[in-house]
């Protein structure tokens, strides 16, 4: 699988000269199998550019939404393939206890917030998760609800001999007991991320910010690294960067976390445009 980051920013787009290296687009990640099958994690503003690069030969795209906070769906209406009747677009995401996924998405994809109704798009199907594991082409996908305000899922995708977990908005540190990580059955998202080749994980806050925003559903670099160690991930990509953190600050947070924690797994920068090959090489 080839994993490409098209948007790595959390909360709100943060374009500008100070964010050119990590990028200002909100979450969108492409996962492409060797046979050309394609998934997209989330539909933040990064998905507009992702959609512009879709080959005309593509017949189907599956968008896996983690949740419906604005930064994760804001780009959906600007995803070109939605308007191409030749391309089937399947949108997967969580329902709420009272509204279907389609009804929830329609709150955004309808006037006055958006000129086009979701129901008027030519070839779109919505699927509610979490659900039992399912397959999309060469991908085997597991989902479960994770710790973040409102219904939010994490994903584990296996394909081409590799495994990637995507947990972009996640606060597993809320599961700590007296500052210590509990047994695996009490850690949010553990089963999704255990032993993965690549873990894309929330690292929005500094330690100081986390004190102010505890319970808001996000992690620090330290929490992300500790979670990766708990699950035995082989590589982590810190993700969902705070919009107020510029490139220099993100470099510093990354370097400090690596120096302090000395992870025994690979750590890669969560920069827009970064590409990761996971599993068997083509």
């Amino acid at each position: 699988m080839r994993v490409t980051l098209f948007g790595t920013r959390g909360s709100i787009p943060a374009p500008g000269p100070e964010t050119t290296r990590y990028g200002g687009n909100t979450p969108a990640v492409e996962v492409r199998a060797k046979n050309g099958a394609m998934l997209a994690f989330d539909a933040g503003t990064g998905i507009r550019r992702l959609g512009a690069q879709v080959s005309p030969a593509t017949a189907r795209i599956d968008i896996l939404l983690t949740h419906l906070h604005m930064d994760h769906i804001q780009g959906l209406g600007f995803f070109g393939p939605l308007y191409d009747p030749a391309i089937e677009v399947h949108i997967w995401g969580p329902a709420s206890s009272t509204l279907s996924l389609e009804a929830r998405l329609s709150r955004y994809l309808s006037p006055p917030l958006f000129p086009v109704h979701l129901r008027d798009l030519p070839s779109v199907a919505c699927h509610q998760i979490p659900s039992p594991p399912f397959d999309i082409g060469p991908f085997h996908i597991e989902t479960s609800l994770v710790c973040h305000p409102g219904p939010t899922v994490g994903y584990r995708v296996e394909g081409d001999g590799g495994v990637v977990a995507y947990m972009c908005d996640h606060e597993p540190a809320l599961c700590l007991h007296n500052g210590r990580w509990p047994g695996r059955e009490w850690i949010s998202g553990f089963d999704l991320a255990v032993g993965v080749d690549l873990l894309i994980h929330d690292a929005q806050y500094t330690d100081e910010e986390y004190e102010r925003y505890l319970g808001w559903g996000h992690s620090t670099y330290r929490h992300a690294f500790e979670f990766a160690a708990q699950v035995g991930a082989k590589q982590i990509v810190p993700f969902h960067h705070d919009p107020s953190h510029d490139d220099e600050m993100l470099d510093r947070l990354h370097e400090n976390a690596v120096r302090r924690i000395k992870p025994d797994f690979a750590v890669s920068h969560g920069r827009e445009g970064a590409v990761f090959d996971v599993g068997l090489k083509s």
Partner: peptide, 16 residues
């Protein structure tokens, strides 16, 4: 196997 998030959060809440 990890418990559902509702159970994990309930335990956390109980602790407080």
């Amino acid at each position: 196997m990890a418990h559902p998030i509702q159970i994990i959060l309930m335990r956390q809440l109980a602790g407080y």
